[in-house]
Amino acid sequence: MKYLLPSVTALALALPGMAAAHPHIFAEARLEVVAADDGSISELRHVWRFDEVFSSSVLLDFDQNTNLKLDEAELAELGEIMRASLADFDYFTTISVDGKSAAIVKPDAIHVSFEENQILIFFAVRPEAPLPLKGKLAFGVYDPSMYTAIDFPTDEDLVAQGKAADACQRQVVRPDPDEIIAQNSETLTEAFFEDPSGNDMSKLFATRLELTC
């Protein structure tokens, strides 16, 4: 499958080593961190809009009936392949509580649409274990392979919803990669840049929403 569908496997870094230089795929994103009434995080809702070049390559790969659009069945197939492939990269989602990483579970589905020549995907992930709004929590989105650049156009594209979140202080952090590398030169080894997905350092580079509760 990964050889038949190069654009999707690129998204999931099925071509190791190519990502080290710079991003090849670009997406604008929105992240909604949803708090439940019991004071815990219920889910993280993602929306990604991919660039037209990548979207066009996906259209070529998945337009099986060559009608120059993606039908419902074709979109569903694309969503299932993304759901399976991105699992190896935790769906580009990082969660930390007081500096310690928290795991997520696989989304029930990834919904895909094709609008104005661009691929949009919608999905939600949940914390694997109960995650109360206590301490300093950070929610980030970053491709550890560095193949895909996820951009939040404005700080308002990272939001926290729910009454329990209203009591927390909110900050959007946009790290400077050069500063991160300089500050962590002893930790960021050559192995990180050869296979950044194989470690836990990618959260340092993630644009993230921080909540202090």
Rank of each mutant, 00 (worst) to 15 (best):
residue 110 I to V: 14
residue 65 N to L: 04
residue 56 S to I: 01
residue 77 E to V: 06
residue 133 L to Y: 13
residue 78 L to R: 03
residue 73 A to I: 11
residue 84 A to S: 08
residue 104 I to S: 11
residue 55 S to K: 13
residue 131 L to G: 05
residue 141 V to K: 08
residue 114 F to Y: 15
residue 79 G to T: 03
residue 59 L to Q: 10
residue 113 S to N: 11
residue 61 D to I: 03
residue 87 A to V: 08
residue 123 F to G: 06
residue 162 G to F: 12
residue 70 L to T: 05
residue 150 I to A: 03
residue 80 E to A: 13
residue 110 I to T: 09
residue 134 K to D: 14
residue 96 S to W: 01
residue 92 F to Q: 02
residue 94 T to I: 04
residue 155 D to Y: 09
residue 57 S to F: 06
residue 63 D to Y: 08
residue 59 L to S: 05
residue 85 S to H: 05
residue 56 S to R: 14
residue 154 T to G: 02
residue 132 P to R: 01
residue 124 A to P: 11
residue 61 D to R: 05
residue 106 K to F: 07
residue 159 V to H: 06
residue 137 L to N: 04
residue 76 A to D: 06
residue 125 V to C: 07
residue 104 I to Y: 07
residue 141 V to R: 06
residue 128 E to T: 02
residue 127 P to C: 03
residue 129 A to H: 12
residue 163 K to H: 11
residue 81 I to P: 00
residue 110 I to R: 02
residue 116 E to C: 00
residue 102 A to E: 15
residue 109 A to N: 05
residue 54 F to I: 11
residue 77 E to P: 00
residue 105 V to F: 05
residue 89 F to C: 02
residue 119 I to Q: 04
residue 135 G to L: 01
residue 121 I to S: 08
residue 159 V to P: 06
residue 111 H to L: 10
residue 109 A to V: 13
residue 147 Y to T: 15
residue 163 K to M: 08
residue 141 V to G: 01
residue 98 D to K: 00
residue 160 A to Q: 08
residue 126 R to N: 03
residue 134 K to V: 09
residue 155 D to R: 12
residue 124 A to Q: 08
residue 106 K to H: 06
residue 120 L to P: 00
residue 128 E to G: 06
